[in-house]
Computed example of a mutant assay.
Amino acid sequence: MRVQIFAGAMSLALLSSPVSAVVNHDLRDSYIVVLKESVSESRANDIAREVAKGHGVIGHQYSHALKGFSLKVPEQALKGLKNRFPEIDYIESDIVMYALPRGGKPNRGGGGDSVERAVQQVPWGVTRVKGGTVDMSNSSSVAWVIDSGIDSNHPDLNVNKSRGANFTRGKKTNTNDGNGHGTHVAGTIGAYDDGFDVIGVAPGVEMIPVRVLDNSGSGSMSGVIAGVDHVARYGDSGDCANMSLGGAGYSAALDSAIKTAATQGIFFSIAAGNSGQDASGFTPASTNGTNIFTISAFGESNDNFAYFSNYGSDVDYAQPGVDVLSTKTGGGTVSYNGTSMAAPHFCGVLLATGGSFSLDGDVNNDPDGSPDPIAVSN
């Protein structure tokens, strides 16, 4: 039996606080069980039930992006699991996934009704990628924001929470953003061109919250895979899933899930990470394939590569990721830095162009010596 064990988890999409301050997920004895593709859905359900009877606790079940389930069980109980169920392809250890703002925790804000709306600003990043020019309110394509949820009451955002889902612990129907990260990401993708707050790259596009990160900005790999599975089940060709999150190491399960969803014509825009290292050491930044894009960050001055951004051959394009103004949970706006802010620019470009975007120069001072091209809307 192949059990894939990750190295220590760490922040990918945005630099975290010290690990002890943010890890609140007890993932000891927690695993992701991936079944062979040939296994039927009914047999997969039978296996999950039988494992549960054997004193394992089943968490998420996957049926579209991959086949399998998450499992909490003592490590010693794994030993005979594959012998008992030859349909098991492999088992991975679950790990903590992160998305925290560089330099601090997102401002959760107050009540949306109490925040006076400011005159609309066009963020520099939206201008740089030549976004904000096409009203996407009636587009059939949508943005799936796999993140900490979205503030559905923010007046500058077109949020459809009825199609959303919550794969964190707690009330599963609640897709509201208790952290602030997902709301900021959403505003960059598609804040309305309505004269208030900010404008997004694909203004007015419908955004669906897929909550996989809790109020602390952390979650589990198993929950993130459940989010991708949800997108694979309900998404359509031309949609974009934004993943401004991640962890250290490699996950065959998450890699496979993203690739399967992408074969349906769903775009994936993935943050490269903020460790200033090669993106190949992080997941899902290292995932490659058709319709899958890993995004590095640059600043407003001379398109200079952001010092914190991950780099390397797994990175596809660079987008604005320094001093990015966008929507804030509770109303109003706030600026953040990070590749978490770069990825939603590209998601907006994909939605606004249907994937037929243009290139406008390269970043300067890319550490890997091969400058990332800058993608822009037509």
Rank of each mutant, 00 (worst) to 15 (best):
M97T: 14
D255M: 02
V198L: 01
D214R: 08
T260I: 09
S16W: 00
D113S: 15
G204S: 02
H181P: 01
G125Q: 00
T168K: 01
S140D: 14
S358T: 11
R102N: 14
L100K: 12
S162M: 11
V363I: 10
Q76T: 12
T127A: 13
N176K: 11
D255A: 11
V119S: 14
V23P: 00
I208L: 06
N337W: 13
S63W: 09
I270Q: 04
G180L: 04
N242V: 13
S114W: 09
I292Y: 01
T327C: 15
G149N: 11
L78Q: 03
A191M: 07
I32V: 15
Q61T: 15
T339M: 03
E87R: 09
H60L: 11
G361I: 03
T260G: 04
V142M: 11
D147K: 07
S70P: 08
D239F: 03
G289N: 06
S326I: 04
G56F: 03
I58E: 09
R28Q: 12
I95K: 13
L71T: 06
P203R: 10
S340G: 10
V159H: 02
A241D: 07
H345M: 02
N288P: 00
L157K: 00
G331P: 02
A118E: 15
S141R: 14
Y31K: 08
F69M: 04
M97K: 02
L81P: 04
E116Q: 14
A191Q: 05
T290F: 12
I295S: 03
G321R: 11
D316A: 12
A342Y: 04
I258T: 11
R211C: 06
V39N: 09
A9M: 05
D147A: 06
K105Y: 13
K259R: 15
L325G: 01
R49W: 10
D46R: 13
H345Y: 06
V129K: 03
V34Q: 08
Q120K: 10
Y90H: 15
L27V: 15
M341Y: 00
